[in-house]
Amino acid sequence: MKVRFKIWRQDSPIDKGSFKVYEVDGLNPDMSFLEALDHLNEKLVLRNEKVIAFDHDCREGICGQCGVFINGRAHGPHENTTTCQLHMRSFEEGKVIVVEPWRAKAFPVIKDLIVDRSAFDRIIEHGGYISAKTGTASEANAIPVGKDIAERVMDVAACIGCGACVATCKNSSAALFTSAKINHLNSLPQGKPEEHQRVLDMTAQMAKEDFGHCTFTGACEVECPEGISINNIAEMNARFLKAKLFR
C-alpha cells in the first residue's frame, strides 16, 4: 500500500513549523496508523533525516498517550477510537493523509506531533483524587455501591485523558474531560465528603488554563475514544450550581 503523508514538522515550541510531504510505500493495510508512522521513521533514519516525533505508549487504546488530528478529525476518520486503533485500511491507496498535532492554546506543541497536555494534570491536581484512606483493593467491597451507580461511574472513569475532546472542540474546551473526572469521583461514596470543593476547584483550574467555553457542539462525544456522553457536562454544571448554593 502506498500513501502520501502530509505531516506537521516543528522542531521546538518556539519554532514556526510547517507541513512536509512524505511518499510512503510498502505499507500493509492491516498496519495500525502508528505502525505506518514507525515505518516512515525507519525510512527517515536510513536517509539520515530527523524522525517524526509522536506520542504513544500502550498501543492498545487504553493509555491515552497517542492522539493526532488525521484528515480533519481527532484520532482519524472513525468515531470513538484512538489513533493506535486506527488501521491503514481506513485510507484509500495513493491518497494524501494530513497529520497535525492537537491545536489548542492550552496544548502547546513540544515537537512535531507531540503536545504538552500538562494542563489536564493541573486540573487533576485540583481535586481529581480522594484524600480519604479507603484501604487496599480487597477492602473495596466494604463500601457498597449500587450497580446503576457503578455502571454510570465506570462510563466516565473510562476517560483516558487523551485530549481529543479539547482538540476537536472549536473552542478548545476541556469541559468533557473535567466533567468526566468530577462526575466519576462525586458519584461514589468515597468522593462525597469533598464533592463541593472538588467541583469548584477543578472548574476554577479549568478556567485558569487556556481552555475555552463549552458551547455543546457535541463534537467531543463523537471523537472521545471512550464515547463519554456530553450530558456529563450538563451534570457537571448542575454539580457546580449545587456547590455554589450549598457549600
Partner: peptide
C-alpha cells in the same frame, strides 16, 4: 475567550 483559546486553526478540519 474561545478565539483566544484556539489561536491556530487546523489546516484540514
Amino acid at each position: 475567550r474561545n478565539r483566544k483559546s484556539t489561536p491556530i486553526k487546523y489546516a484540514v478540519n
